[in-house]
Amino acid sequence: MTAQAAHLIGCRTCGRVWPEGTPTCGRCGARLRAIRDGHSLQAVWAWLLAGMVCYVPANLYPMLNTSTLLDKTTNTVIGGAVELWQGGNYGVAAIVFVASVMIPIGKFIAIGWLALAIGHQNIPGRHRHLRLLHIVEFIGRWSMVDVFVVAILSALVQLGVVATIEPGPAAASFALSVAFTMLSAQSFDPRTIWTTRTP
C-alpha cells in the first residue's frame, strides 16, 4: 500500500507521514510534495534543458590556454583528452573522456528517458529505472573533475616565459552544465516512476 492510496503524504527527507494537504513536514521542516504535483517534472525538464544548452559552449570554447617558450596552444574538453591519448596516457585519457563527454551526455539521455517513461513501465522496468536514477544521482558530481583539473593546472603552471596555463571560458559553462544537470536529477521525484498513467 502506498501513502498516496491511504490519502497520506510522505516526507522525502525524513520519511515521516502526514495527512494529505499538509504543507511542510513537522519533524524535519522539509516541504511536502504530492506525487502528482506536476511541478517536479517541469523542474526536471527546465534544469535538463539548461544543462544541455550550457554543454554546447563548454565544448566549442577553449578549456585551457597554454603558452610556452615555443608556442601557444588552446585546448577544448575533447582536445585535452585527445592530447593525453597521443601522449601515451591511455588510461587517463579514457577517464577524462568518460567523465567529461560520456557521463554528461549519458546523463542527458538517461534523465530525459526516465521522465518520458513515467507511467509507461511494468514492474521490472520500474526497478531498472529507479536503479538508473540512483546511478545518475551518484555519478553527477564526478563530471566536475575537468573543472578542477583546469584550476589546478592554471594555478600551478605560472612560470612566466617558460610556461603559463590560463583557464578558458569553457570551464564556466562546463561547471554550469554539470550543476544544472545535478539539479535536474535532484528534482526528479522517484516516486513518479511507480505511478501508472490514468487517461
Binding site: A3, A6, H7, L8, G15, R16, V17, I35, R126
Partner: peptide
C-alpha cells in the same frame, strides 16, 4: 491494514511511496 494506523506510526519510502 495500514490505512487504519495513525500517521505517526508509519513511514513512507521516499523512492516508491510504499507505507
Amino acid at each position: 491494514t495500514l490505512s487504519n494506523t495513525r500517521p505517526e506510526q508509519l513511514i513512507a519510502c521516499p523512492f516508491c511511496d510504499a507505507l
